[in-house]
């Protein structure tokens, strides 16, 4: 496998003195679906801005498929497609022109550009809006148009800065399916997200960044395997006192009939139920909590789940 992205000792200090990146090292292999996870202000957008030529780095090295950003920025840019966090459209331009012009900026001739524009607008269900000005689109449509624009030159690496922020669940899922399909077809994808569920569902590798520092960088599988605890949601048959915590299991009351139990690794389900039975707790049903990564995330970043979308 060849390396899609290699970042070494990347630093960024903004004019105001904010140190947004403090020596970031990162590698992304070709074909990976990579998540950059971090709280607000962690430096995710700064990192993406540097990769895509929207932010000047202070120091460090960036290579995309062996091309050095300092030496041949144009070759680096030609291989990247980017969807920024903030909307950046000419809102008076039509959807068709928005995508088609972008192809033109990459030097794709008119006929091929039109073919791709049509294909993408159809794939992303924007075809009936093709002649509408961008300002007439809903928020979700605008995000999809950004994606179409990012893909029109057929990049090798797609970079998405919070692609599903503000999308409803249905749209988010359909976007996931689309991205997964593109990834399976060979596209390397790097995304940032606050939705831990998203990273867990899509990405085979996750890096966690906070305050400009990469705290962890590992395959999603390994990270999940390393979780010291797993959380279960227990629906109770009748309300009662919350059982006392011990070394291996801690309880949280969500409401009268719902408990959450953090269970340490190595404890079997039998043991859990044995203890619950001893505490006179009657369990109606049980499920694992979906966002297991969140536990790790909070562990690492050392913050409460405040500000994170569950």
């Amino acid at each position: 496998m060849s390396q899609a992205l290699k970042i070494e000792q990347l630093r960024k200090t903004y004019a105001g003195g904010v140190e947004a990146l403090k020596g970031v090292d990162l590698k992304v292999e070709q074909g990976e679906f990579f998540a950059l996870l971090g709280p607000n202000g962690a430096g995710k957008s700064t990192l993406i801005g540097i990769l895509t030529g929207l932010v000047n780095k202070s120091s460090g090295k960036v290579r995309v498929f062996e091309e050095d950003l300092d030496v041949s920025p144009e070759r680096v840019k030609a291989q990247l497609g980017v969807m920024t966090q903030e909307l950046n459209f000419n809102i008076f331009e039509s959807c068709w022109n928005t995508v088609n012009f972008q192809a033109g900026y990459y030097g794709i001739d008119w006929k091929e550009a039109s073919r791709r524009t049509e294909q993408l607008l159809r794939d992303l269900e924007l075809w009936d809006k093709a002649q509408q000005p961008v300002r007439n689109l809903s928020g979700g449509m605008k995000r999809r148009l950004m994606l179409a624009r990012a893909l029109v030159h057929d990049p090798k690496v797609l970079i998405l800065d919070e692609p599903t922020a503000g999308l409803d669940i249905e749209l988010r899922r359909s976007l996931w399916v689309y991205l997964q399909k593109r990834n399976e077809a060979g596209l390397t994808i790097i995304l940032t997200t606050h939705y831990l569920e998203e990273a867990e569902a899509l990405c085979n590798r996750v890096a966690i960044i906070d305050q400009g520092v990469i705290l962890r960088d590992a395959p999603t599988r390994d990270l999940l395997g390393q979780l010291k605890k797993q959380t279960f949601v227990l629906e109770l048959a009748e309300s009662g006192p919350v059982p006392a915590d011990d070394e291996e299991i801690q309880y949280r009351e969500v409401d009268e009939l719902t408990l959450e139990a953090d269970v340490s690794h190595g404890i079997t389900m039998n043991e859990v139920f044995e203890r619950l039975g001893r505490s006179q707790v009657k369990v109606q049903s049980m499920r694992t909590k979906a966002n297991r990564l969140e536990e790790l995330f909070i562990d690492l970043v050392g913050k409460k789940s405040k500000g994170l979308t569950v």
Binding site: T52, G53, L54, P73, E74, R75, K77, A78, L80, V82, T84, E86, L87, N88, F89, N90, I91, E93, F101, Q102, Y105, Y106, G107, R149, H153
Partner: peptide, 14 residues
């Protein structure tokens, strides 16, 4: 102002 200059900045257009 509307940031669509970024369309050109991210492209390989010199």
């Amino acid at each position: 102002f509307m940031r669509h200059i970024e369309e050109m900045l991210v492209s390989p257009m010199p």
